[in-house]
Design a protein around this nucleic acid. Structure first.
Lengths: 221, 221
DNA sequence: GCGCTAATGTACGAACTAGTACGTTAGCTA
DNA sequence: TAGCTAACGTACTAGTTCGTACATTAGCGC
């Protein structure tokens, strides 16, 4: 299921640096997501690739840097998706609900990414800190939220004192938890949070929650 | 900082099975939470104990079972805390807010527990599944939520179609995410979700969110 | 076609790590 | 106080795992 297919070559190996690197990253993503950083095996990653372990060290330098590269690519994917967000033509309430739903969908569709982020948190985000790419590139989604919030607050639809980063945290927490904690939650409470039959239910619940929060009138003290 | 101090014994070792086991569990909890399941080192756990690695295998059988025992004890602590919940004398709105706040506080005070749960999710909750104790002991908090919800729905304060498990998931997701993802979130957005100065802010935000969700009037379609 | 370099493969090693075989002793009981 | 067993310690091993030294070749530029 990798995006690369090879031109029919008799028996030999093809030289294609980009393809080799991409394939290593594909497999490494799966392996790290499956077993965690320390649980992942470099030999196992190599074995599931058309190349050898030698290439992992040739291109990435080591296990640590490979994981960083995996993270960088994974974050790249979501940033790309966020750039395609097109909700600002909607009224603020509909826009926020739509944004929440897209966040919900994206989390559901990328469980490996969720696992990688969980793993990175276990390790204190040290790989993000070590990465130049991931340094501090605020997400496009945040800009979108900022603009919608401003519009909603101006028109008096939204409570005034809500911050974009906090709202992003609120939406993310629900979407993230549902995927990241589905195993323990399911084992303890007997309910599968990612059951396809309940998908619409939770999607609606998230939207309702966020809109209710934004439009509630609170005592300002 | 362990809860056990020894009776002044000249130079010798004291025999105290319970103390030895408790000390192993204390250290193991820290070590697993620090480094993840595969990152944790049995030798390291033993070294930070007044006993030896042999005892870990003597009492627990192996690394796998040790982690399960650590989880069992950690879940026991929160179940104990939940049993002390005393909010049902309040009106439903105040009761739910108080419950949310106590959940918030508990998550903040037990980051190691959060990490253990994250780790267990990476491993598909297989240790919970393997544990007899953790099999399916519904949390006391859930019963409390159930009763408050029923009261709130009866009196017409709360929207009728909200379920206790779902509400528990909603509250937990916010509290859990704030602690579990603080490193990546901080690194990416430059905001520390567990900054003490922001503690009250997020605590209030959680309560506002939950109450707004429960009391909002939604179109029933 | 020649040569040069990026790309690749093979084989191996040093260090680590979970787990165990075997021996010892504290301290309760009769 | 003799004896027994739960509790404990030491030393070791078998297998694993990251990483590398060394050898090889594809294919582009000239």
């Amino acid at each position: 299921m990798t995006s690369v297919d090879e031109p029919a070559r008799p028996n030999g190996r093809i030289r294609d640096a980009a393809r080799t690197q991409a394939e290593i990253l594909d497999v490494a993503t799966q392996e790290f997501a499956r077993a965690g950083y320390d649980g992942a095996r470099v030999d196992e990653i190599a074995a599931r690739t058309r190349t050898t372990k030698r290439m992992i060290y040739y291109y990435f330098g080591g296990k640590e840097q490979l994981f960083t590269a995996v993270l960088e690519r994974a974050y790249g994917v979501i940033r790309e998706a966020e750039q395609k967000l097109d909700v600002e033509h909607l009224d603020p309430v509909a826009a926020i609900r739509r944004l929440a739903e897209l966040t919900f969908d994206h989390h559901e569709q990328h469980p490996d990414f969720i696992r990688l982020v969980s793993i990175e948190n276990i390790h204190g985000a040290e790989h993000i800190a070590a990465s130049e790419k991931l340094g501090r590139i605020g997400s496009p989604a945040l800009d979108v939220i900022r603009r919608i919030l401003a519009a909603g607050q101006e028109s008096g639809l939204f409570t005034a004192d809500v911050d974009a980063v906090d709202l992003h945290a609120m939406i993310s927490s629900f979407c993230f938890f549902r995927v990241s904690n589905r195993h323990t939650f399911g084992a303890l409470f007997g309910r599968d949070l990612v059951d396809p039959a309940q998908r619409e239910h939770y999607r609606t619940m998230l939207g309702d929650m966020v809109i209710a929060y934004l439009t509630a009138d609170r005592a300002t003290d």
